[in-house]
Design a protein around this nucleic acid. Structure first.
Lengths: 329, 329
DNA sequence: GTGAAAGCGCTAACAG
DNA sequence: CTGTTAGCGCTTTCAC
């Protein structure tokens, strides 16, 4: 029925191991043999059996990609680039969605480890020590998350946040609100911290409201608190929140950007399309996917590589939700 | 190092086959043995080796999910539900993105077949005969696409399109434009056909413009043609196109819904958030994912099941982009 | 109720 | 340059 190494070996009067070599170490067989094997393989529609190969070599050529929520518009760019890159490496991507639940993430990771050569954990909600421990038992690359001794790809919001605060202050804002995301997210306090540093540098006030769910609905609920905060500008944990806030403010009669400036984080597709278009801090999720797979490749090939951290810069994308500086109006 | 059936058998003075049974056919071993095995397995952190199992049984417990573009906002709901459902079945999802390219899809499918128990092809761009042939060599479930003799999950736009046309005609529209999507998509002519049927039934004019890329940018480009078509309402191939059209119309000074009504298809997250909010035909992509995996499960379990087709109904979601009937204004 | 033995398809020394 | 041999971890008859 389905072609195997053995069947093509038999057909050619060769030993299976020779056929195997013809594919994996072509230089170790005669050109003639290589050709004959290639031809017959083609003709018989031979496809290597991954399971058998995995069992023999201990390498699955699969890499697990674990993300909190496929439906969250931040992740598609990540998944897509990771998938594409992995494919080019001859690797296949096992995708799993944790639904933002740490216990579920834990279970998924356990199940995925033996089926893969390595795991890419995006925005993991697991505690640091657990991640460190995992890294000892499997190849691990973290994305948008760090843990001691574990390789990671960071979307460094520092750049973007500095640009955002400069931008807001240049527009004349002196009291700025930060709308916090979920408590269990590593980025929530991190972004708060970075904003705090900038606020101090620029000598402006920073107030925090939240936490809120990082969703459009979360933003709807947050808008009232933002209004009551006395701030004239708001930086939200992410674009979805920002979009929700923007929309709720509008129905409350608060005009964006005239009465309130709004900035998000992520630059999801929706940000450019909304009215007003949303000023946002763009995270290079596409690059992150590539980078993560690349790092994984090195870890798998290399000889006990040190944990590495790649930091991708972020950039403020100015759109109409922050308006123009007073002197330009 | 890592626990195997053998190691736990050795530890218990049992034969590996007994340990295997303790997991797979618990009723065939003594309760006492079952308990001891379970305990030691737990203690040693045993995880079955998928590759070995796959090699022995011929089942990988993996199912391949192939979609044209992960970054397209229609698919996340599909992928997510498919992934979740598969996980519950103890199956793992291999995700691949064809980048809308048939040759690439072909290659991906070939590579995925031997690694999976079956393939779910979403919006496949492959010709019918090729799909039929594939179905003979592997378990196949098509989503949003049909081919003779192949199981499929259809998002039947008929319901939604009927509702949409009824709605538009009730609003007083007599000349309606259809903005076509890409030529190679199965849905493009299909939707045109369904609209045609309704136009005829309702005795209104239907004009087609396009094809256009099914993207926001595509919509930007389409708007001019829509304006020149003389239509007062437009049904776009999908939401992204509709959103682009809506936005470009606005900059052309054509008000939605006052001067032009706009309807999309998909009900992506953005549709509800845009201004004006987009009236759209909701496709149950989430259900489709579940259904596809469920059908796959049956096909894998069942004894030569007939090809089945599940049709999921669609529904018109009325929002402000189509406004209110004249007599209600 | 449990053990013995063979084999899934492929790779990896080791010979020759 | 090619064949031999053994074995990856698990399942699956067939015996006992």
């Amino acid at each position: 029925m389905v072609a195997t190494l053995q069947s093509i070996a038999a057909r050619l009067g060769l030993d299976p191991s020779t056929v195997s070599r013809a594919f994996n170490e072509p230089h170790r067989v005669s050109e003639r043999t290589r050709r004959r094997v290639a031809d017959v393989a083609e003709e018989m529609g031979y496809r290597p059996n991954g399971a058998a190969r995995a069992l023999a070599t201990g390498k699955t050529n699969a890499i697990g990609v674990v993300i909190p929520d496929v439906a969250n518009p931040v992740f598609p760019a990540f998944v897509k680039s990771a998938q594409t890159r992995a494919w080019r490496n001859g690797q296949t991507v096992l995708l799993a969605d944790t639904d933002e639940s740490p216990p579920r993430e834990r279970e998924i990771v356990k199940r995925l480890i033996p089926q893969t050569d390595g795991l890419v954990l995006c925005s993991s909600r697991l505690p640091e020590d657990e991640l460190a421990e995992l890294a000892a038992r499997a190849h691990l690359v973290l994305v948008n998350r760090s843990a001691p001794g574990v390789s990671s790809v960071l979307l460094d919001a520092a750049d973007g946040i500095r640009q955002a605060m400069d931008h807001l202050v240049a527009l004349g804002h002196r009291r700025i609100a930060y709308v916090a995301g979920p408590d269990h997210s590593w980025s929530t306090p991190e972004r708060r911290r970075l904003l705090g540093i900038q606020a101090e540098r620029l000598r402006v006030e920073l107030v925090t409201v939240g936490p809120f769910a990082p969703t459009y609905e979360g933003g709807l609920g947050a808008a009232g608190f933002v209004r009551d905060s006395g701030a004239t500008a708001v930086v939200a944990y992410n674009d979805l929140l920002a979009l929700g806030i923007q929309s709720a403010l509008a129905t409350m009669g608060i005009a964006v950007p005239d009465d309130m400036s709004v900035i998000g984080v992520d630059d999801i597709a929706m940000a450019a399309i909304s009215t007003p278009a949303l000023t946002t801090i763009r995270l290079a999720m596409g690059m992150a996917g590539e980078a993560a797979i690349r790092m994984m490749g090195q870890a798998l090939a290399g000889i006990e590589t040190e944990p590495t951290t790649v930091t991708l810069a972020t950039q403020l994308i100015v759109r109409s939700s922050t308006g123009h500086p007073p002197d330009l109006v």
